[in-house]
Design a protein around this nucleic acid. Sequence first.
DNA 1: GGTTATTGGTTTCGAGTCGAAACGAATATT
DNA 2: AATATTCGTTTCGACTCGAAACCAATAACC
Lengths: 190, 190
Amino acid sequence: MKTNQIYKLVERLGELLKVDARQTGAEHGLLPVQLEVLHYLSSCNKYSDTPMAVTEYLGQTKGTVSQTIKTLEKKELVIKIADDHDKRISHIDVTPSGHKLLSQSIPTAMFARTCSNLSQPQQQEINAALQQLLVTFIKSNKMKSFGICQTCKYNHKNEDGSFYCNLVNAPLTDSEILLICREHENQSCD
Amino acid sequence: MKTNQIYKLVERLGELLKVDARQTGAEHGLLPVQLEVLHYLSSCNKYSDTPMAVTEYLGQTKGTVSQTIKTLEKKELVIKIADDHDKRISHIDVTPSGHKLLSQSIPTAMFARTCSNLSQPQQQEINAALQQLLVTFIKSNKMKSFGICQTCKYNHKNEDGSFYCNLVNAPLTDSEILLICREHENQSCD
DNA sequence: GGTTATTGGTTTCGAGTCGAAACGAATATT
DNA sequence: AATATTCGTTTCGACTCGAAACCAATAACC
């Protein structure tokens, strides 16, 4: 059993990534968590851009998330928009300056350097291994997967090549199926 | 290039591990960072159990680390011992109750569950991939590796099977070569 | 040998995270 | 129409974190 070895590796990798994120975020006056939230918001769909969704994603309390978003709003990296149908809900859009900041920050400099020193097959292997670990982690602990629609069991491919979500009963565009959804469930869920 | 994909995977894995660590630590009244420091201290050698070493390991400032250690000390999970030769330096030993807490906490419940759902070859693959990513990350960014003596270029195996460190000029026991050292440098460093 | 760095560590300060809990408003349920 | 639930904010206290000032011990230098 390699449990302990793998644990240590993931732990250490997480620590180094945090150091990296701290450094990267500091250049724009952001803390690691704020950068993560911004990153999430930039890559999720319209059902998943609410404070509650962020709360589930980060595993924090809604009070904490509320404050994080407030500071992102103050920096004008993000803007809150009230929902049309449910007045309790607000959607959080990333502003152009938010997108600009992200494009300069992610992937981080250290991480980009790392990948540039890995061959294509090596990247392939690492990608597959991480994917497997992540999916197993989520399944084993019955957590929400927060994957993209493309890999979701509710997503259906029509004969004409277009996509349709059987959960919200609405069509999905080619770009939408690459966004993160809070209702995502893996296809191969047995 | 899988840079972005791999980045997202590591980022997400790190987040989930933090959620896990928060939950695990909370059972003993510890925060994630405090648990990490305790874990590090329990697996490093006598040259690496000082506040400064922890500072380098976590990439935080010495002031922050000083406080974290102070709270661990207050909980009697750790004890500070003055160095014999240099009165500025203090060594931090994990107490029996600290070791007990760790054995109950690491690897975390979620992580153990995850690994139990992975076959032996799968674990092997994941272990190798993570190892490669970590080593490349450290090399690419010229960071301290914090590896164990067994894999260090200063470690030398004598003919009788015993070990010797060429940096501090002292023999190493079989159990010592499995501890983390702040002066560690990978053998294959070209 | 005595002055001047340098190093290990602590303390203080201010900004911000974080969970817990109380709260308000909108929507669901009954 | 009354009650419960949900989304979100606010407030509080404990804690992280970096920056900077500070102290004591050691090292470097002349």
